[in-house]
């Protein structure tokens, strides 16, 4: 009889194992890491005491060669190129496919297939494609550019000290542009047909139709695509380890954490991790709250 008064109780019970696991392994371990990041513990031995925010301050003011800010700069370049690249390519593909094309299913499947491949595997071929040799030594894509008479396109790819991270984003774009395309296609399909018809009745040109009627409807799609690619970018580790290995020129915070752990500097690794988490949370938490509210309204 009790379950008739509070039928939801059984639901809470069913979901509770998940809640406990996530409570401990997400929130509990985050708290653990935050605590670790405020300890004076820079080798395998016990903590020498509470260090407050020192480890964080040191990342910005007292890191050899400004290694941390260097890795942040790399991450920023990567993130911008990756996000813009996937959005642009995804949108172009979606626009090309949106009103139906011959063999549409084939194109969609091929554009999306790189998503099924692991970064470790695609890194193998992209390292080869992004061969930094130029001129007579050209290999990979540079050889293609040379063969097509487009020598000016030859470049050192990820080995360029300033813009190498932009090249590192190319494989990531290859891998996820198809996913963003799928998001856009879903967005287009979600727009009621009456809107298009009304615009056509009003004599809107194709350009006006997209510019004034369809694109504004896609704002939520763009937002989710940016959140998804943005947070992936913050975590980017596999691809970089696979293409370049851990090295200065392509180091991002996620790789820096790994390298720091290899030296048993636990508190510093924890501080970098928490910093990454905070950056992600600043973007994602408002988004989640926004989605939650939007759902309640509808």
């Amino acid at each position: 009889m009790r379950s008739w008064k509070r039928p939801w109780l059984s639901g809470l019970l069913l979901i509770s194992p998940s809640l406990i696991l996530l409570g401990v392994l997400v929130y509990g371990l985050i708290a653990w890491t935050v605590n670790l990041s405020m300890q004076d513990r820079h080798n395998a031995r016990e903590s020498k005491g509470f260090a407050g925010l020192d480890n964080y301050v040191n990342l910005f003011t007292n890191d050899i060669n400004d290694r941390f800010t260097h890795s942040l700069k790399n991450l920023l370049v990567f993130t911008i190129v990756f996000m813009v690249g996937t959005l642009v390519m995804g949108l172009i593909w979606a626009l090309l496919l949106e009103r139906g094309a011959r063999a549409e299913g084939v194109f969609r499947t091929v554009y999306l297939f790189p998503m099924a491949v692991s970064f470790v595997a695609s890194g193998v071929v992209w390292r080869w494609l992004m061969n930094p040799g130029e001129g007579d030594d050209a290999g990979g894509l540079n050889a293609v550019f040379g063969g097509l008479g487009l020598d000016f396109l030859q470049n050192p790819w990820w080995t360029d000290p300033d813009w190498g991270m932009a090249a590192m984003a190319v494989p990531a774009i290859w891998q996820l542009a198809g996913y963003v395309m799928a998001l856009f296609l879903a967005g287009f399909r979600g727009i009621p047909n009456e809107l298009r018809e009304a615009a056509a009745m009003d004599g809107a040109s194709n350009f006006q139709l997209y510019r004034r009627v369809l694109f504004p409807q896609l704002t939520p799609t763009v937002l989710s695509a940016m959140i998804i690619t943005g947070h992936m970018s913050m975590k980017m580790f596999d691809l970089i380890m696979s293409v370049s290995g851990a090295q200065w020129i392509t180091e991002v915070p996620a790789v820096y954490v790994w390298q720091t752990l290899l030296t048993s500097d636990y508190a510093k690794a924890a501080a970098i991790s928490v910093f990454l988490l905070v950056v992600v949370a600043i973007v994602v938490v408002p988004y989640l709250i926004h989605v939650n509210r939007a759902e309640k309204r509808s």
Partner: peptide
């Protein structure tokens, strides 16, 4: 939220 966390933030413990 657990979907978005960088797993580095839980990996050490």
């Amino acid at each position: 939220f657990g979907m978005f966390i960088p797993y580095q933030a839980v990996m050490i413990p």
